[in-house]
Amino acid sequence: MLTAADVIKRNNIKQSGQGKIPLLMAHGFGCDQRMWRFLQPLIGEDYQLILFDYVGSGQSELAAYSVQRYQHLLGYAQDVIEIIDALNLNNAVLVGHSVSAMITMLAAKARPERVHSLIMVCPSPCFLNDPPNYLGGFEQADLQELLDLIDKNYLGWANYLAPLVIGAENSQQLIGELTDSFCSTDPLIAKTFAKATFFADLRTELPHIKQPTLILQSKVDSLASTEVGRYMSRMIPDNQLQIIQAKGHCLHMTHPQQVWSAIRQFLSSCL
């Protein structure tokens, strides 16, 4: 049986802020909690800010990693559920970047009494195209080729994916940081998480979201188009969609001021 101390250590949980509302920040694929550092000073002390690393990412306990558990997004959702329980969070706001928007959605489904609202930064419920009604942006063969590249040329894979994610027009420093983050991840863990991410299809879960939800999409995003955001907005019962005039898939890193402004406005309307 995991204790609260076990979970805090396993997921490298860091807490700050004196506010009553918990903000649990869930990083995306190939990243870690450091990617939230651009938002952190904007949030200040008004909220209880909780950062963590998924098992297999950042400074988490690698010994706790299991391919069996983490080959599906439910395994990552279990990390979030166990963090919510360990910290005894109530009225929590779950902030998820990219695939973590879907992971936190699954966690909220499991703990509806503890989760107040969801904030999704550049989310996608399905990266695969399913014409004519849904265009996720990728064909299955394209995604399989991307996964195969991990085995063939891990460094090449990282150097290809990082500018695609950050946006080639954005900071070369951020692109370099994300490349380093990818490269520092164990290739088996990276491939397992990538497969779980890119081949997931959680579209049927969207209509069952019970929490108020903010969807933040980038105007130009190679991984999650504005059409994906509009699809999600049609499917989620209680939501707000904001499209930010930006390029790239990491709005919280490239445009933190706009992201926090949207989050603050959303929370003031629903808390």
Rank of each mutant, 00 (worst) to 15 (best):
L24E: 03
S233Q: 15
E177Y: 12
H97P: 01
K152M: 10
V93C: 04
L62I: 13
C31D: 15
Q59P: 01
A141T: 13
K152L: 14
K210R: 14
P187N: 11
C31E: 15
A4V: 08
I236L: 03
P131A: 10
L39M: 12
E113C: 06
L118P: 00
V259D: 04
Q242P: 00
M120L: 13
Y47F: 13
F193M: 11
W157N: 03
T3V: 10
V259L: 05
I103N: 00
L206V: 06
K247N: 13
I43Y: 01
S124C: 09
L118C: 01
M102F: 05
A77M: 07
L89N: 01
Q265A: 12
F138R: 09
S124Y: 03
G56R: 01
Q242C: 07
P163W: 07
N88G: 11
F138Y: 15
E205N: 11
A101E: 03
A86E: 04
N159G: 03
C183I: 14
Q48D: 02
D32G: 07
I189S: 04
C183G: 00
Q211F: 01
L178N: 00
P237Q: 07
A92E: 00
S117K: 00
V67L: 10
L206I: 06
R230V: 08
E205Y: 13
L202M: 10
A200W: 07
N91A: 05
N170M: 07
R34L: 13
F52I: 11
D32R: 04
A141F: 08
L147S: 14
L143Q: 06
I81L: 10
T192Q: 08
L42I: 09
F138A: 08
L106Y: 01
G229A: 06
P132F: 00
A77C: 09
H255C: 12
S225T: 14
E139G: 10
M253P: 00
K109N: 12
Q217C: 14
Q48I: 01
P207Y: 10
L214A: 05
Q140R: 13
N88T: 12
Q240A: 08
T192D: 10
E139H: 11
P123M: 05
V99R: 09
T254K: 00
I263N: 01
F198S: 07
L118S: 02
E139V: 02
T197A: 10
A262I: 01
N239L: 00
I243H: 05
S181W: 04
G96M: 04
